[in-house]
């Protein structure tokens, strides 16, 4: 699992240090990959986000200073190389496009999708699928 943000490299470094992040973090200040991956750019705050915010605060989370584009929404993309790599194709085995703040995916949901993908791959290739970068704690 890797995380991609949209601030500066220094903001990414601060994010890693502040939250003790143990997975790889990259940043895309141009947000080009966000656009290509289908992520939305909009306000992202509405009635549905109020309940999510309350739940997050009750769970002990606090919103810190926003570092990056405040309009950019996130999401999750599960991607793998296709059999025909020469054709520059990839398989999307999971995708979730956030509709706003707090629209997060449960890590277990992504893990189940990964296992389903690996099982399907093993069935078609006759061998175990490449292990890749399993989501230790996606979300």
């Amino acid at each position: 699992m890797v995380a991609i943000g949209n601030g500066t490299a220094l903001m990414a470094q601060d994010f890693i240090e502040t939250f003790g992040v143990r997975f790889e973090v990259f940043t895309d200040p141009s947000r080009k990959s966000y656009q290509l991956a289908g992520m939305q750019r909009k306000l992202g705050i509405g009635l549905r986000t109020i309940g999510r915010s309350i739940r997050a605060m009750r769970a002990g989370f606090r919103q810190g200073k926003t570092q990056g584009d405040p309009w950019q929404q996130g999401g999750v993309l599960g991607i793998a190389p296709a059999d025909d790599a020469a054709a520059a194709r990839a398989e999307i085995w999971y995708e979730h496009v956030d509709d706003g703040a707090g629209d997060n995916v449960e890590p277990q949901t992504v893990l189940l999708a990964l296992r389903a993908y690996q099982t399907a791959r093993a069935a078609t290739t006759g061998s175990a699928a490449a292990s890749g970068r399993a989501p230790a704690a996606a979300g």
Partner: peptide, 12 residues
Amino acid sequence: GPVVLVYLRHYG
């Protein structure tokens, strides 16, 4: 191999 790309809304 497969990878999970988590796109963050923002840092912080």
